[in-house]
Design a protein around this nucleic acid. Structure first.
Lengths: 147, 147
DNA sequence: ACTAAGTTGATAAAATTAGTCAACAATATA
DNA sequence: TATATTGTTGACTAATTTTATCAACTTAGT
């Protein structure tokens, strides 16, 4: 039970984008370098984010990607679901037919409650929150240098 | 991001055990049949549960497995962690050295919060709760037949 | 035209998951 | 004590998923 690199990388890439975005689009190549993700791999993570309307892209010179919405309107639940698939932790939750016992299975309920709890946590964290946290962290480590 | 069959099956097996346990130990074979899990596979899921002191086993004729503690003292967090491994959804949470950016990574915090939320949900559900839910469900479907 | 970007699809290595099989160990009981 | 019954262990394998890489392609700016 883990978040794959897809979800992790996409989240990091979005945060990186949010932090480096002013007017001009941000180069995939630069995000890849800063986040130490292979560019070829990152390209594939970006695609679904574009399709979902989270980021926009422009090709050609001076191209790159930009957030399609303000960061406070981008919840991590959306990002994670996009990259990790519809977190039905267990197949029978989304598709009861796979198991003849589904109707009367108490364990099935628990997996669904777990899913809901996870979504709740992720939904409560937006890209804006991440940006703020990141800046705080960087301030904290800067201060560390003076000690 | 999902619960593997190991976690699912182990939970179902434990619930099955809890529901069918009176004095005599319950046969692995019967659990496997009722839960439609292959016996050979189930054997491997049982081993860590024994090692963790959740169930006890006796070999030979009239053997089988039994709960080692009352069901209200068996939380799903324990079961799931045992079978799925220490749910550090992301490697750098448990082992910050794997990523040079860990100290100042805001995303890392989120995965840890997510982990905590999940553990909280799972911890709040004991085998006793599952038993009660299961019995309710069965009553509910019985009533359905009369309609 | 040419170059700089993103886009897409085919492919593949590596890791994990899910499961099987067979040899083995312990125990009740006839 | 022989034997059938049950759990235990470890080696092995097939399938799937993850994690990429590469190359051909498209689009846009200069």
């Amino acid at each position: 039970m883990k978040v794959s690199t897809k979800g992790q990388y996409a989240t990091r890439a979005l945060l990186d984008l949010a932090l480096h975005q002013d007017e001009a689009p941000v180069l995939l190549k630069h995000i890849a370098q800063r986040q130490k993700i292979s560019l070829s791999y990152l390209e594939h993570l970006i695609t679904p984010l574009i399709a979902a309307g989270i980021i926009t892209s422009t090709r050609g010179p001076r191209g790159g990607i930009s957030l399609a919405r303000p960061p406070e309107e981008i919840g991590l639940d959306e990002v994670v679901q996009l990259l990790e698939g519809a977190i039905s932790l267990v197949e029978c939750v989304g598709n009861p037919k796979v198991c003849t016992m589904s109707q009367s299975c108490a364990t099935r309920e628990v997996w669904d409650e777990l899913r809901q709890a996870m979504m709740g946590v992720l939904k409560s964290v937006t890209l804006r929150d991440l940006m703020e946290r990141q800046r705080e962290k960087e301030n904290a480590t800067e201060i560390m240098y003076y000690i």
